[in-house]
Simulated assay, not measured.
Amino acid sequence: MTPVGTLDTSLSESQYSSLLGLLGNPNMKLASIYRSSRDGSRYEDLLRCVGDKTGLVIIIRKGKYVFGVYISAGLQEPDDPTDTRRCECDILYISLAGHFATPTKIDLRGGLRGCGGQAVFVTGREGSAGGTRVYVAGCLWMGCESDEGPAVGICRCEQYTNSWNVPAGYTGERNSTGDALLAGEESFHADEREVLHVVGQ
């Protein structure tokens, strides 16, 4: 992808502009603080690059599909490296390509039954949160375990959006119960994972 201004991001200019609009502030400044293709795909690489920053947009690209999730919190590690930390925060899912005629936000506020509430779960570097490294309420898992055990990296992901939260006009893939699969399938290896930071947060 061509860099957007001075921001070295995987997003196109139109996707970047749409993202700012969906976040509600076209004048917002975002900094690309992590890209798996640039910084490494290990869990430690993600945590090292993100650090203690808050106001994050996690972007996932899988083939023609591009989607993300804004979390007002950061990826806060627990004090015990074998434990998991839950952090309450604002969450907003965003479709940038492959699902709707135009970029669309998927606001899950009030619609997170059984999905962990408005929270992000982050494991310690030696832990596993129910088989994953990072879980974002609204059903996104990053760094899922395989048959071999806990994931070393964050490439293997799972995602679905409950059918009652899917906006009108959705044309992407669904599972057998009608839930939207923003990556085209529920379990997948992401082509690119990126974290953008809202400058000033």
Rank of each mutant, 00 (worst) to 15 (best):
T6H: 12
R61Q: 14
E173W: 02
C115V: 14
L196A: 03
F188R: 03
Y135M: 13
V57F: 05
S95V: 00
F100M: 05
G117Y: 11
L112F: 07
A151Y: 02
F67T: 08
I58K: 02
L23M: 14
I59G: 02
S32T: 13
S37K: 04
A183I: 00
A97W: 06
E173H: 01
R174Q: 13
S72I: 10
S36Q: 10
N27H: 08
W164V: 11
G149E: 05
N165V: 13
R42I: 03
E158H: 12
S176I: 08
E126H: 07
G138N: 12
A180N: 01
V198T: 12
M1Y: 07
K64E: 13
K53N: 11
L22W: 01
S95G: 06
L182E: 01
E44T: 09
L56T: 05
D8M: 02
T2Q: 15
L140N: 01
G98N: 06
Y65I: 02
G172C: 09
R133Y: 03
G124S: 06
V166P: 04
A119I: 02
Q76P: 05
V122P: 04
S36L: 10
W164T: 11
L75T: 06
V166A: 12
V122M: 10
L108M: 15
D52L: 03
G184R: 10
I106M: 14
L182P: 11
S146M: 08
T171R: 10
S72H: 12
A97Q: 02
Q118K: 14
